[in-house]
Simulated scan of single mutants.
Amino acid sequence: MPAFRRTIFAAICLIAFVVILRHSSRSPDVPDARGYRPVQEIFAEEKDAVAEAQRRKSGARGQMPLGATPTAPLRDRLRFQFPYDMKKRFPAFIWQTWKYDPSSSSFADEFRSPEASWTELNPGFQHEVIPDDTQRHLIQYLYGSVPDVFEAYDSLPMAVLKADFFRYLVLLARGGIYSDIDTTALKPAGSWLPEELDRSTIGFIVGIEADPNRPDWHDWYSRRIQFCQWTIVSKPGHPILRDMVAHVTEETLRMKKAGILRMGDMDKTVMEFTGPGAWTDSVFRYFNNPEYFNIKPGDKNITYEDFTEQTTERKVGDVIVFPITSFSPGVGQMGARDIDDPMAFVKHNFDGTI
């Protein structure tokens, strides 16, 4: 009898161990990133900006905060206009852009099924496809209080640059999901994150686009690990988007002032200006920013090594990083699995052209 009980006890312990292991493996922190713990409260300056905006709206008297003045640094003005509150819900918006509205006869047939997949799988979301002739007016409306941002958008000389910039701008101001028009939703957005994850501790979701573990990777990609920009999920005001909007704005106005903001004359490629190279740098800058993480002297930086060969989601502070399968299933390389994999959420058809 004692032996039988020991056997039962051992079996129970084994089952419990497997359950705990499976649960803990669903969203591990990035391995070996000692000291990278997100500040537990909403970031102090964001809380202050929210409180100040509410105070001013109510008509209370007091000194105008620096971020509200036209001469304040761009990042401070963006922080004031679009404060980040991590504890709020992800807005139920789906943003896409194309040359024409889906109601137009000019809307390409090959995009109708992918576009419809987002509405069909996410019936509770407000799904907007913003046509080219509307994008400028929307950015002017959203960024009327930050005129240099609109000036930068309006000055960009190529449609691909405007398309890149628009996704960062609309997510910073309104939040939600941005996905290119040539993507197909494979699973409802509400199911992308494991149920056990507390959404009030997550403000941003990004996926790996490329993980080229080969000596000549730089001949094909801009970064050893490259983050995807064709599908991004964010709460409004996230610091990664603020940094990216500031980067594009500052570089645009710098080249405009230098008289080189023209096709063939710019000193930055699309990849390094608005595209995946610059985008990946912005994400890593956030991961290694002591303003947002409790980084101790001697702690190692978050680098590509923390994400290579990743197969499930990983959490860095308030950011979830999905593996390459999530937004690039079926590409047949770099470890990406097929579209029927549990971690496959969005399929990029690579059909979009500007």
Rank of each mutant, 00 (worst) to 15 (best):
P38A: 15
Y141M: 09
T183M: 05
G275A: 05
S282N: 07
G277Y: 04
P342S: 04
R5E: 10
F284Y: 14
R77Q: 13
K162Y: 05
Y100G: 01
Q229L: 15
N288S: 08
W192I: 05
T183A: 04
T184Y: 03
S103T: 14
A185S: 14
T69R: 15
S117K: 02
E120V: 00
A159M: 11
F287D: 04
P73S: 13
I20M: 00
D76W: 13
S105A: 11
F273W: 07
I20W: 02
V319I: 15
G190M: 02
T269Y: 01
F17V: 00
T249F: 10
P157N: 11
F111I: 01
F345R: 06
Q96W: 07
T7D: 06
T97D: 07
R5Q: 11
S104K: 02
G335A: 12
S25E: 03
N122C: 00
N294K: 05
K256R: 14
L156A: 08
L138W: 10
F150A: 03
D341T: 04
F350N: 12
K256Y: 01
R37F: 15
T184K: 05
K235N: 12
S145L: 05
E309A: 09
M255F: 09
L21M: 00
P65C: 11
K296P: 00
E151P: 00
G275H: 04
P114L: 00
V245L: 13
L253R: 12
G35E: 11
L66I: 13
L161V: 05
M271I: 09
V321H: 07
L74G: 13
D182I: 00
L21V: 00
S326W: 05
R314I: 04
R199A: 08
K57Q: 13
L193T: 12
H127N: 10
V39L: 15
A189E: 02
A72I: 12
D76C: 10
H137I: 05
I225F: 12
P236D: 14
E305H: 04
Y286V: 03
T201S: 13
L197K: 03
W98E: 06
L74E: 14
E45P: 02
Y36I: 12
G259T: 05
F345Y: 12
F43W: 15
V331Q: 06
Q135V: 13
Y221R: 15
L142E: 13
T308M: 01
I339M: 07
L172Y: 08
K315W: 06
E195P: 02
R55W: 09
M334V: 11
P215L: 13
R26D: 02
D267Q: 07
A189V: 14
M64K: 15
R112L: 00
A152T: 01
Q229V: 14
Y178L: 01
F284W: 08
E120A: 03
K315L: 13
Y100A: 06
A278M: 06
A159T: 13
K162S: 08
R37P: 03
F82S: 06
I302K: 01
Q126F: 02
W230E: 14
I232H: 08
G124L: 01
D243K: 15
G298F: 05
L161M: 15
A44I: 11
F125V: 00
Q81N: 15
W220A: 12
V248A: 10
L241W: 11
A68N: 12
I130F: 02
Q126V: 05
F107P: 01
T269M: 01
Q126A: 03
Y143A: 09
L261H: 05
